[in-house]
Structure formats: structure tokens, C-alpha cells
Design a protein around this nucleic acid. Structure first.
Lengths: 217, 217
DNA sequence: CGGTGTGAAATAATTCACAGCT
DNA sequence: AGCTGTGAATTATTTCACACCG
């Protein structure tokens, strides 16, 4: 169990590996609350739907965390993965766009458990300013820039309508945001240095219809 | 422009290709409403962030849709892609779990535009039964099974709490659902013949924090 | 044993580069 | 000229298989 602080050159770590890391962590947390002390690569793989070899290969990118003949210590591995994903710290997030999706995000209590603190929300519509959801208040969009700087906000959850997304994203970048979780069905045009991850429900539905049809062919 | 009704053996079509198809379609619809008659692979690629060769390779899995020297007819290609993704028809969907996320989905008007008709919602909590959002009503969970059969519901959008997700999914499968869009952060254990696609916001946030940290290293 | 870590082999996906069409 | 469609080459990812360790 070597704790490696210097993450090895991230460019040669497969993207798919990073995506699976989140799944492993989720599963480890489940084992943790079940009180299971260890887990092996086959069990972990089965629970996320992949092979044992893949699990071992993924983890080996970051260090040697297992014990031959035993498997992985659940608690220890969870700590390692949280460290790799950088969820071993608190992140300040804001919601931008307090429509239906935005307010649903504000109200979801589980983000706080995971270290994502939603500390404010913003909306351009005057009648939404002052609303509250999940214990945080909706502020005027005019305060966005200043707020991000003053409160060291690293992450913005962007849930404005499609047509406003790029403009608002530009403001976020100018204000020094570090990452954007984008719910609008547009590709944001963002310079280097700011990361974007998108969630697109329509797209997911389209994947589903394709798969349904393909399965019965 | 050959319209191929027999989709070639779907097993050898790369998964990434299918994911990109949705992006192409989105972009084509944008061009369509801008009144642009044609688009070439370089433009299309640039707008979704990939190379022109990739665009052509993706499309060539399904037929020959382009015209040398010209590019692709925007409207024609959109029709083809809708056909491939099976969004050239109407799909009946229900929302199961009328919490914050569920109601946000019900209220999102754009799904209807794309052929996804959300025709009902269900919740186990009596105080949520009878609520309305986005023009559709919340029914009792007890009616779920019967409703799916009687109304030919093909897709369920599952937005119940994590601990209930597997149970509800089992009910959906028994009732003959064909696909599930899963918002709960669990891997659903579902037999063959029912497709599952997941949306996991916590996971997306974790991808984001990893990327933010990796970018500055 | 039972299980990890890891090179080597196999498979999948992307990019190149160019013949051929308009 | 301008652009598609596509084999061939390259690069990325997964799987295999086995040495080695507790």
C-alpha cells in the first residue's frame, strides 16, 4: 500500500480508467458501510460490470494497493481513490440558472456528503432572485463575477437555457472558474485551463432508443 | 444518398460512434434552423470537437450520405441520423420518482420536441400523488405495472432514491419496459432484453475535479 | 491455495493519406 | 478545386496468462 503523492504523468492514463474510478469508489463505500474489510478484483469488477483484470490494470496506473492472496483493504483503497480523484477535499460550487434542473441540483443533499458544497445560486430572472432551495439562496446574475472571486468558487454547475449557456460560460471563465458542469445541450467554447464536463439527458435518451432497437434486431 | 433500412450488424459499430451521432444530429438541427443547406465533415467535426476523418468514418458505418466536392445535405443527413438512432418515431416514457429531479424532467419541454412523450409520473409517497408538472400528473406507484402495459410505455426515467432503485427497476422489467434511464447512483442488475443508460451527476463532478487537478499539474 | 501486478497479445478506435467522384 | 469514402497505419484499450507473494 504505497501512497504516491506525485500522480504519474496524467496524459497516459486512459480516460476510461478515470471514469471507472468513480464507480469503484461508489462500490467501496457500499462495502465500507456493510462493514466488509477487504474486496478482491473479481468482486469489485463484477459489481461494476467489468473483468478482474481491468480492475487491477486500472489501479496499477496509480500504485500498488492490493495484497496478494487477500485483495484490497476497502477503507484504504477508498482513501487512495478519493485522493486520485481529488475528492479528498472540499470544493466550492455554485449553481448558475435556478430553473427546474438548477433547483433540483441545489436540493440534492448528497453532494455535500461528497465534499461538493453548493454555496450559492444565480439567476437572471428577478422573480427567481431570493428563492431558496436546499439551504442556499438565489442571487442576482449581476453579482456572479464578484461572488466567484470573493468566495473562491472553483466549480459552476451551469443549468441555464441553451441559448444563454455560452455567454454565461464566458462570464464564468472571466471570473476565474476552474471547472464547469454543463447541463445545456451545447458544446461550450472554452479556452484551455478551464475544464468542462457535460450532462445531456436528451443525448442519453437517444443512446437508449438506439440500444433498445439494436437489442431486438 | 442511400437509405439503408437494414442497419448493418450492430455489434461491430463502435460505441463511441453512437455517442457522437447524437452530437452530429444536434449540430445539424442548428444548421437546419440557420438555413444552411450543406455542411462538410470538417465543419461538422469542428463543431463537436473531433477530426473530419472521424466524422466520415462514423457516418460510413451506416451508408454513403455525402456528395464528393459538396459535403452532406443538412436536412437529409439529419433524417438519416434520426432513423439510425430511432428518434424518427414517438416514444412513450414515464417518470418514476417524482422528487426534485423527477419533476424537473417532467417540466423540461424539449423532450417532447424530440419525440419523447412523458405521459405520466409515479411516486410512492401519497402526498406527491396528484401533483402536476409539465402537464403530466403523478400517479400512485401501485398503478405502475398496469399503466405500463395498458399504455405501451417503452421507456422509464428512474429518479427514485438510491435505496429503492433496484426494486422499482425489477417492477419495471416485469411490466415489460424496454429501456430505463437511470438517475440513481447504482448499477442496476437487469436481465438481457432491457437496456439501461445512466446519468450520474456525482460521478460527473468527480470527473471534473480530476480533470481540474490534472490540468494544472 | 488465492490473489495481485504486469509484460505480451489481442482487440478496438482513431488518424492518415489518397483514389475517385462532381 | 473541393470533398467523400475507405483501406492501411497508428494509437489506445482490454484481455490473457503467468511469475510471484502472503
Amino acid at each position: 500500500m504505497i501512497h504516491c503523492d506525485c500522480v504519474p504523468d496524467p496524459t497516459n492514463i486512459p480516460r476510461p480508467t478515470i471514469k471507472r474510478l468513480s464507480l469503484y469508489l461508489r462500490e467501496l463505500e457500499r462495502h465500507e458501510s456493510d462493514g466488509k474489510p477487504t474486496v478482491n478484483s473479481r468482486q469489485l469488477g463484477a459489481s461494476v460490470g467489468i473483468t478482474d483484470a481491468q480492475v487491477r490494470k486500472d489501479l496499477s496506473c496509480f500504485g500498488q494497493f492490493g495484497q496478494p492472496g487477500i485483495g484490497y483493504r476497502v477503507a484504504g483503497l477508498a482513501v487512495e481513490i478519493r485522493h486520485i480523484l481529488k475528492v479528498d477535499r472540499e470544493w466550492n460550487a455554485i449553481v448558475v440558472g435556478a430553473g427546474n434542473i438548477g433547483r433540483a441540483i441545489m436540493s440534492y443533499p448528497r453532494f455535500g456528503d461528497k465534499g461538493f458544497r453548493i454555496i450559492a445560486a444565480f439567476d437572471a430572472a428577478p422573480d427567481r432572485v431570493g428563492m431558496e432551495a436546499g439551504g442556499c439562496r438565489v442571487l442576482s446574475m449581476e453579482m456572479l463575477h464578484e461572488y466567484i472571486r470573493e468566495h473562491q468558487v472553483q466549480i459552476a454547475i451551469l443549468s441555464v437555457p441553451e441559448h444563454a449557456a455560452q455567454d454565461v460560460a464566458n462570464t464564468l471563465v472571466e471570473a476565474g472558474i476552474r471547472g464547469i458542469l454543463n447541463f445545456a445541450p451545447v458544446r461550450l467554447n472554452i479556452g484551455a485551463g478551464v475544464e468542462v464536463t457535460s450532462v445531456d439527458v436528451s443525448r442519453s435518451l437517444e443512446q437508449l432508443t438506439y440500444q433498445i432497437a439494436a437489442a431486438e434486431a
